[in-house]
Design a binder for these strands. Structure first.
Lengths: 238, 238
DNA sequence: GCTTGATCTTAACAGTGTTCAGATTAAGTG
DNA sequence: CACTTAATCTGAACACTGTTAAGATCAAGC
């Protein structure tokens, strides 16, 4: 409703703010670029000088939101890891932050997860996947996790917390109260960690999985002339 | 392109078929009711005699698709469970079916997961959640899973496979080949199962979680006069 | 004060979901 | 068979959407 028509250099962020509120109010698809522009006091076409399309706005929002999640996770992990406390508390705290976020802001979480792989330019740091990797490395360093079980363990842990988060955000799973989320997360992550520690066979398949986020980073840093783009493109396997 | 204008009693299914193809071609939101109607050779408003809205069509499609997934899971579990084979093979086969489905048909999987909780009338049988519960009960019966770890274990297992499935369907995680999905699924589920078996504390929180699908079924069968609808409605906690 | 580049507006286009009054069809009744 | 009837589909219209193009407006630097 603000009638100021000229947001110099700030229209981009202001539009992202409005879009985030709209997502929270009406869901991922229950709003229009026109409505977001109107709320900011600007004509619809003004938005096209900052975003090439509505999808670009949504992608930018998902990047902003995923970065916030990564910071919440890493700070939660840092805060939980004290001297003398259970070594697993770090990654459990990160997982609880992940799941609570999906529970408290489900519409935004659905947007972030659904569009999180589509912006091939933006760099999210720290990405949730990075936080998990760092905590797992810490577990290996302290001896709490078997080094032979380390390769690929990130995906087991990530899948576990991501499954809880999306089941809750999508309303497929319902909890009795907010503290139930922490209990479920801790139980699941502890189970995965002890299960990984006691693996007998050294996981025959080696690194068979990649994170789309890590793929993008290595592609940018390493060989700038991609010889085999087919391996990195997130296309349908089958 | 079929010019037949009168699909007696079959327009509903024909529209669902067309919508499913469109989802596969253009994604969850990259198509219109009008286009689906046109492909079937019918005017847009004809669809409104079978679905109250576009969302209703999408919901019906998600119900049909989720039921197919449940059957794939249960038949995979039944086929894997033979005499003398590892007891865990049943639930692992079900999990592999779940994850492979998301990998092979990601757009349809995203639709099913995203809209799977919104249709409060339809009954999905067997629901994936049911298949998991049945397999876990079998594990307890054969002694492969500790009975004290059984309550709530369904959600740990469900979250694990659902996390893999959604990470793959959304393109956040990328696999090197189709067989990698089975390896990852088996590794993760085995870890969760052995982790659950070796739990020391009897999971303090008792049944703190529900499946939205189970909620609906018990609400329909049990007390037809719901005294406390707030506990069953999948609303946002906190 | 005037130029300049960034920023925003107005107007328009094609396409969308949805509704409603009326036409068309298939099937059953006498 | 003719005729009713209920199911089924059409056509036109409404408000709204994403997007684009040409032009107006602003903030700042020479």
């Amino acid at each position: 409703m603000s009638k100021r028509q000229y947001h110099h250099g700030e229209l981009r962020n202001t539009l992202l703010d409005a879009a985030e509120v709209l997502v929270r109010e009406n869901g991922v698809v229950g709003w229009s670029l026109r409505e977001a522009s109107a709320r900011v006091g600007v004509s619809p076409s003004a938005a096209y000088h900052h975003f090439t399309s509505r999808d670009a706005l949504v992608n930018a929002l998902s990047v902003r939101v995923l970065a916030r999640l990564g910071e919440r996770m890493s700070s939660a992990a840092a805060q939980a890891a004290g001297p003398g406390v259970d070594t697993q508390q770090g990654i459990i705290a990160a997982g609880c932050a992940y799941v609570r976020w999906a529970l408290e802001d489900p519409a935004v979480a659905r947007l972030a997860f659904g569009f999180g792989a589509q912006d091939s330019e933006a760099m999210i740091a720290p990405h949730p996947h990075d936080v998990i990797e760092a905590e797992l490395d810490r577990l290996v360093a302290t001896g709490a996790l078997n080094a032979t079980a380390r390769p690929g363990a990130e995906f087991a842990i990530w899948a576990a917390m991501h499954g809880l988060a999306t089941l809750l955000a999508d309303g497929l799973m319902i909890l009795d109260g907010p503290e139930a989320a922490d209990l479920q997360t801790e139980r699941l992550l502890r189970a995965v960690l002890t299960g990984l520690t006691q693996e007998t066979a050294p996981s025959q398949g080696r690194p068979t999985a990649h994170s789309a986020h890590t793929e993008r980073r290595t592609r940018r840093q390493g060989n700038s002339t991609p010889d085999e783009p087919s391996a990195t493109a997130p296309t349908r396997l089958q």
